[in-house]
Write a protein that binds this DNA or RNA. Structure first.
Length: 501
RNA sequence: GCGGGCAUAGUGUAGUCUGGUUAUCACAUAGGCUUGCCAAGCCUAUAACCCGGGUUCAAAUCCCGGUGCCCGCACCA
């Protein structure tokens, strides 16, 4: 489905719409409606069940969304999140200063002030790559963070967090103290991050306020033990730098074991690549042939990452592979920067070992992007029928409950709806229009089950107190006693957990 | 930011070039009748010209500005 068509469908069903719509919308901001919230929460729960479930020592926290200036100075965001831009006065093209200065200053522009960059531009008579004019402006700094006054004096500055990860680093020392004081220690955050994007585009793909789910795993750089034999034979769709340089777009299937033996990747890293891939493929149900693990080159990687593979998924609505998650090996960059910035020694002393500064493996997941991904990959039109084949445990509504004949069966169906809801199964009652339309409505929002109360349910006989249970994808029906209904549905409504060694 | 295109009920659209009736049709939504296990039928109702300014007796239609969306370029720590 095309992006427009998909968005129209989601908007009509109350999944998602532009923020401040009555004022014409605000670029890069979107609101979730009732179904969208339900889907997003289930997605977040499924993420947490899977990734936080990787170890007993992984925990979810909820840090503040506002970061004092000292934090973003130490993290490097104040400096590096700024992208100096040079514009051509003649043709109005805009370029990153780094691109313009590439030839005369291959070491990059980090640490240079806008004025210094301007001097280099004019001293070297650099021309606009588009029109050849010499009229290049002094760069204007553009920071992607939203800044704000903090406190009453107006002298203090603070910023909306540009990534949720910082809260985990700031809380590491506290988490060490309140926990088992053992590595690896995992800290997960699910929450909003904010970036003042230059050009928000493609609906949920570049937003100014978006939800990330990130797990930071702190581990001893001398060893991160993982049960690698359990994943050794798994094959991964790899697109590594060497193949990319030959112009390849499609991944090749590589054994996890081979990535370690001859691919130069550490076991712990490949182990987490496997679990990340499994999440996308087995938990979210993305088709395996649409996934690839895209290795970022030295030049493309964020400066603090030693290894970076993006999980990319091919989406028809956006015309290609899109990054929906990533696995970053950040080394000790974050803890060492915050040690320096705060003056607190963040190294730890595990029992029986020398003090050490942990390294960080970061597993990131774009929640909104995957809401879109779930729509793109599972929502389709089959003739007249619109069907959203969401995994059952992600569906906003688990079961629709209908009276076959409105007047006669409504009380029973309403009571059954309440009973299922009380058992924690999201049930929605519907007696509108015809039975066929009710099924169709449920198909469109991905509801895996529908239950219909009919004459047999109420009549004395062998089928008394049984209802028909209809399955979304096959449209098949079976007769199920009311007492067994919840137990029949419950297993498929729980998100999978990883198998642990 | 640059260039090009687009903007009419909840959704998809006709009408715009060539200004002039009560703005077209379908689906969706709500209510009623009928039916009773896969979007059936009939009746009724709700509902729109992106915003602001200009030209004109008269603007959905022409002009200017703004906003938003789409495509390409650039950007995406």
């Amino acid at each position: 489905m095309k992006s427009d068509e998909l968005f129209a469908l989601l908007r009509r069903r109350g999944v998602l719409w532009p923020s401040a719509e009555i004022y014409g919308g605000a670029q890069g901001l979107y609101d979730y409606g009732p179904l969208g919230v339900a889907l997003k929460r289930r997605l977040e729960e499924a993420w947490a069940a899977w990734f936080v479930g990787l170890s007993h020592d992984y925990h979810v926290i909820e840090p503040a969304e506002i970061l004092p200036e000292a934090v973003v100075r130490a993290s490097g965001h104040l400096e590096n999140f700024t992208d100096p831009e040079v514009t051509c006065e003649s043709c109005h093209s805009a370029f990153r200063a780094e691109t313009i200065l590439e030839k005369v200053r291959p070491e990059g522009v980090d640490g240079l002030s806008p004025a210094q960059i301007g001097e280099i531009v004019s001293a070297n008579h650099l021309k606009c790559p588009t029109c050849g004019s010499l009229a290049l402006s002094v760069p204007r700094p553009f920071n992607l963070m939203f800044g704000m006054d903090f406190g009453v004096t107006g002298r203090e500055r603070a910023y909306l967090r540009p990534e949720t990860a910082q809260g985990s680093y700031l809380s590491f020392a506290r988490m060490w103290d309140v926990g088992r004081r053992a590595l690896p220690l995992g800290i997960a955050v699910i929450g909003k991050a904010y970036r003042n994007e230059i050009a928000p585009r493609q609906v949920l793909f570049r937003m100014r306020s978006f939800t990330q789910a990130e797990l930071q795993i702190f581990f001893d750089p001398a060893g991160f033990p993982v049960p690698f034999d359990r994943v050794r034979e798994e094959t991964l769709p790899m697109l590594r730098v060497d193949r990319r340089e030959r112009g390849e777009e499609t991944p090749e299937s590589v054994r996890a074991g081979a990535l370690v033996e001859s691919g130069g990747l550490p076991e712990f890293y490949v182990y987490h690549l496997v679990h990340t891939l499994r999440f996308f493929r087995d938990v979210l149900g993305y088709p395996a042939d649409r996934l690839r693990l895209f290795e970022k080159s030295d030049a493309e990687r964020a400066f603090y990452n030693r290894l970076q593979f993006d999980v990319e998924v091919r989406l028809d609505s956006l015309g290609g592979y899109k990054e929906l998650g990533a696995v970053h090996y950040r080394g000790d960059y974050d803890l060492s920067r915050h040690s320096q910035g705060s003056g607190k020694d963040l190294s730890v002393h595990p029992t029986g070992k020398e003090p050490l500064l942990p390294h960080v493996l970061e597993l990131t997941f774009g929640v909104d992007r995957n809401v879109w991904g779930l729509a793109d990959l599972h929502l389709s039109r089959e003739g007249e029928r619109t069907l959203w084949k969401l995994p059952s445990y992600l569906a906003p509504v688990a079961v629709g409950v209908f009276p076959l004949i409105g007047k006669e069966h409504a009380p029973y169906a309403l009571a059954l709806t309440d009973e299922l809801a009380a058992l924690g199964i999201t049930a929605q009652y519907d007696d509108g229009s015809s039975i066929g339309k009710r099924y169709a409505r449920m198909d469109e929002v991905g509801t895996p089950f529908c239950v219909t109360v009919d004459g047999e349910t109420l009549a004395d006989g062998p089928a008394k107190d049984s209802v028909t249970l209809r399955h979304r994808d096959s449209r098949t029906q079976e007769r199920v006693p009311r007492s067994e209904l919840a137990a029949r549905m419950a297993p498929s409504l729980r998100p999978p957990r990883p198998s642990r060694a």
